[in-house]
């Protein structure tokens, strides 16, 4: 290999290295921050078909972000905000009943003497929906208040979009 070839190869390698380096994300970018959006995500169903005019069971599945908990539907302290599901009036679908899971006991590390009633991970609300005949794009909602082991986020209401078909 001649000296000229080696020089050219070195230049090529340097240029390729430069291109590669420029593609790395910036370590000091604001993107390194943790974005804390909704702590609860609606999973499914997106669409259900129920007999028109007849209350029918529909199980709604939700997931809580790792590290967070939300108050159950029946928190042990009056000041805590319960998790609650609702459907807007005149949506063509009526919420006849909602059965929430029991909360699990949870204690804050700095307050081991106080037990809270919370949901973590995935949970399911068993509802009975009654739909008018037709297709209804329902924007139901879930109100909850989430905390991690040291801090709490403000109460939040997330959309629970369900396409309810009444046959």
């Amino acid at each position: 290999m001649t000296a000229r070839t080696r020089t050219l190869l070195a230049i090529v390698a340097a240029l390729i290295g430069l291109i590669g380096y420029a593609q790395f994300p910036l370590s000091d970018s604001p993107n390194r921050s943790i974005v804390r959006g909704a702590a609860v995500e609606y999973l499914f169903p997106e669409q259900v078909t129920v007999p028109a005019g007849k209350p029918s069971p529909v199980a709604l599945h939700f997931r809580i972000a790792p590290g967070f908990h939300i108050n159950s539907h029946k928190p042990k302290e009056e000041f805590l905000i319960p998790t609650a599901f609702s459907i807007p009036a005149d949506s063509g679908v009526t919420l006849k009943n909602a059965t929430y899971p029991d909360g699990a006991d949870f204690t804050l590390p700095l307050d081991p003497g106080t037990k809270l009633s919370v949901y973590t991970g995935e949970f399911t609300i068993e509802t009975r929906l009654m739909a008018e005949r037709g297709n209804h794009l329902v924007q139901a909602s879930l109100r909850y208040q989430a905390c991690d082991k040291n801090a709490c986020m403000p109460p939040k209401t997330i959309a629970v979009p369900i396409d309810v078909i009444g046959n």
Binding site: L8, I11, V12, L15, I16, L18, I19, Y21, A22, Q23, L26, D28, S29, P30
Partner: peptide, 28 residues
């Protein structure tokens, strides 16, 4: 020609990196 193309790519990448760096610093 190969070297020229590589140089153009390198310049474009470097310019892009500088732009993103300045934008990130400005945001911070």
């Amino acid at each position: 020609i190969t070297l020229l193309l590589l140089a153009i790519f390198a310049w474009a990448g470097w310019a892009n990196w500088e732009y993103r760096k300045q934008a990130a610093e400005k945001r911070l």
